[in-house]
Amino acid sequence: MRLTAFTKPAICLALAALTLSQAHAHRAWILPSSTVLSGDAPYVTFDAAISNTLFHPDHVAMGIDGVEILSPLGNPVKPEHAAKGKYRSTFDIQLAEQGTYKIAYAAGGLRAFWEDDDGNRKMWPGRGQTAKDSEFDTAVPKDAKNLRVSRSYRRIETFVTLGAPTDKVFTPTNQGLELIPQTHPNDLYATETARFRLLFNGEPANGAEVEVIPGGMRYRDSQQAIKVKASEQGYISITWPVAGQYFLEAGYQDDKAKAPATQRRGSYSATFEVLPL
């Protein structure tokens, strides 16, 4: 999707906040106005922001240049009325097909951290920058102290459904950390248990760490995070305590990377809506 209204610095700022190293410092989320819809071709409007206080946009708008929307039949959907404010981006989509839509941002590439001769910490790509893997050789000194090279992936998603839920958009891309629903993400109800499977590059994300946090954080004193760990086969179960909007964040890493990386890392986050029974 192309949003010419977005200035370059703004995109860089957003991408900086999207980088993996800051995954725990900033939460990036895409929040739909509704997730369960009926009728003829209704609209859903979305907020996209980076903020730790879920889901209150109070830090920086999320760049939505890389956001891709997939229809139930697998067609790309064009966002409408896209705009970027100080703290949030917004866009609308019209649900012309019956079934489940996926709204996703995905990125990945090589990343490196090291220390220079004076002991200063360095990273590539630099803060607020993106780079191609082909630039690695010239940008990163191979003999640097404490050099760590990882292949990192990031994915941010949400789902909305018109009519009966469908499964086509859940076909994994086998790139990075992905969530494959066993319980449909637009069929979640308070007190019920949802089951999902996490895959990393198409393989079970054994031991991936998952945190689920309810929205409305401004109105309570604690995070109220639900923490679970993926099973050997990548499965997780979450019992939703109450109805509301939730943020799920998962992280996986191992040392099975291909050179020059020594580590593979993947992060996944998604926004879900849980309805009252």
């Binding site: 369960v36 819809l37 009926s38 009728g39 003829d40 309805l275 009252p276």
Partner: peptide, 13 residues
């Protein structure tokens, strides 16, 4: 235009 159908989902269960 079947506009009445847009609220059917509010019969949640």
């Amino acid at each position: 235009d079947n506009e009445g159908q847009q609220w059917l989902k509010d019969l949640r269960q």
